[in-house]
Structures are given as C-alpha cells and as structure tokens.
Design a protein around this nucleic acid. Sequence first.
DNA 1: TCGAGATTGTTCGGATACGAATAATCTCAG
DNA 2: CTGAGATTATTCGTATCCGAACAATCTCGA
Lengths: 167, 167
Amino acid sequence: MAGSHTLAETESQITSRLSHMTLDFEAMAVTSNLFRAASAVRNHFERNVLAESGLSWTAFVVLWVTWIWEPAETRDIAEESGISKATLTGVLKTLEKMDLAERSRSDADGRLVLVNLTQKGHKLMENLFPAFNRQEIEISSNIPAGERAGFADMLRILTTYTQEQAK
Amino acid sequence: MAGSHTLAETESQITSRLSHMTLDFEAMAVTSNLFRAASAVRNHFERNVLAESGLSWTAFVVLWVTWIWEPAETRDIAEESGISKATLTGVLKTLEKMDLAERSRSDADGRLVLVNLTQKGHKLMENLFPAFNRQEIEISSNIPAGERAGFADMLRILTTYTQEQAK
DNA sequence: TCGAGATTGTTCGGATACGAATAATCTCAG
DNA sequence: CTGAGATTATTCGTATCCGAACAATCTCGA
C-alpha cells in the first residue's frame, strides 16, 4: 500500500463517497498506516538484505526461527513464523532444494518432523542476520530513541488484542 | 509471526547463537512487532469482516481503492493497493468472476484499462466499509486516545523512509 | 510522417498461502 | 492390550503474489 495520493486527497474522496456516514479517520489512519509500513519495510528488507541470497521473506523467517530453536519442530516453526503448516511444508521443500535446511523424523514421536539448518544454512544466517539487524537499526533510527520502546509496546498491544479476540 | 515463546526466551536463544555479536534488541522488537501486528490485525479483519463476503484481504483492498477513485486506472490501483500489476490482473479476474467489478478500455489511451464497481460491488462496499471502520475503531481503542495520532505518525515515518531508500 | 523508445496490461513460470481431507502415529480409558 | 479419539505433517485444490518477457499502444524528435 504505497499510495501516490495524499492523505487529504484520500479523505476528501472517501467523504464524498460516504458523506452520509460518520467515519473515524484517525482509527482508519492507524490500521492503514500499519499495513503500509509493514509492506514498505518488508519490501525494503527483501531488496536490501534478502535479494542477493535468493530468499523470500517467508523463507528467511522460517530459516531464522529454525536457526534460533534448532532442532525445531515444524508445528512450532509454523506458529512462530505466522504461517500455516501447509504453507510451511512448501517453504521447507524450497529450503531443502536450496540445501539450507533438512528434515528428519523424531525418534521420540513418529508424527513429528524436526528441522535443522545445514552447514550452508548456518553460514548464510551468520552473515544474513547481522546484516538484517543493521537494517533494523537503520530503520528504527527514524523514530526518536525515547519513543521506540513505547512504539514497540503499542504494536504488541494491537497484536495481543486481535489475537485475544480470535479465541 | 505469532510466537508462543516469550520475548525473554527468544532473546536468550539469540544471544546464545550470536554471543560474539552486539545486537540491538530494541530495533529488533520494533520491526518484529510491526510484522506481528500487521499479520494479526489482517487476520482479524479477514475473520470478522471479510469472511462472510468471501473476499480475500487483497481483493477487499483493491475493491476499496477502486470504489474511492472510480473509474480507476489499473496502474493506480496496483500502486495504491501495494501489489504488482501482475497480481492485480489476477485479483481483477476474481472480482469480475464475482460480479463486483468490471474492466473497460480507455478511449483516451488504448493502453489503459479502467475499472469500475458493478452495482453489486457498490452495494457490498456500502455495507462492508462501515463494518470495517467499526473494527478499526475497536482495534485503535486499545491505544490511548492521546497517543493514536503519534502512533500513526511513526508508522508513516517508517513507510516514508523505506520508500525513500528504494529510489 | 514515422519510427525508436517509453508506457501499460497481460501472460507465464515458479513460489507462497490457506482450508479441507488424508495417512501415520500417539494417547489413554476400559 | 486395544481401539476410539486426538495430534501431526502432508497432499490437494485454488487463490495470491511477483519478476520477466511480451504485445499493444502512445510519445515525440527529426
């Protein structure tokens, strides 16, 4: 959502379309900006950090989660990555094809599948993750230092609330 | 990214994996929470507002943008919706199949395609959008009223910065 | 006028995304 | 010990999603 129209233009258009209604533009800005920001930041990472490694955003997140919790169970990876198990199966296929991760059956529970990074996968993450964090610092630097924690808190509040509603 | 692990657990794991590096966890929290929040809020909308209409998130956004700027040029819809032109072609096919939108060639410029909502599309949006805004208000109410505008501002700052970098 | 270059929407190939159905495995009450 | 029910990863069908290649159309200098 990287619109070329200004906020004022958009509000004006919306008002003319729904002039008979009362709308909360501030609430609209909160969610609208949330999606625009997430999309823009994600594209930024894909272009500036992930592009050269040939990883998609999701593939990187899966690789990252696996790297942190290795050996990781697929159900946990899916949960932590925010994707369905069905999607994860496909992403793991891609990562195996790239020789970055590998699957193995759990001895303790035959239903479970454990995921590990290959040596190539480890090497990649040891370079990629610091590069990622450098970009995170660069991006965060646009928010006043004193407000960063509060900003992160508000984001977490939104996450918690919407997830709570899901139950 | 809706993890079951606590922030402290994750930080501890990361530190043990990259103990030889200095990482900025606050910057990490900013971007990480941004994606979690966007994902959670989007899922919330899909379940609570979009599910009954059978619209995907993207299909709704495209419909919304078209509705506001109608008749809308596809290049603008793609830009405003944050998707590629290739993706838009597919989504428009879906919307046409659902009899919610329709395409037509521009008389002034034969390369352009103009998009309009059908009567059914208008009717849907006139019900859907207010319902959407009600949810936006509900979600935003979790952020103190005095901080909402500042929060939206910070999100916009992130969007502007990362898009600026793209040039 | 005309044609090289720019712009636009579509197609194509491949990856991501999910819900539902499925097969394999485990649990645990009886 | 056993089998009904629960849990897990995969497969299947369908819809996104994107970059690259493409065809149609427009622009504008010579």
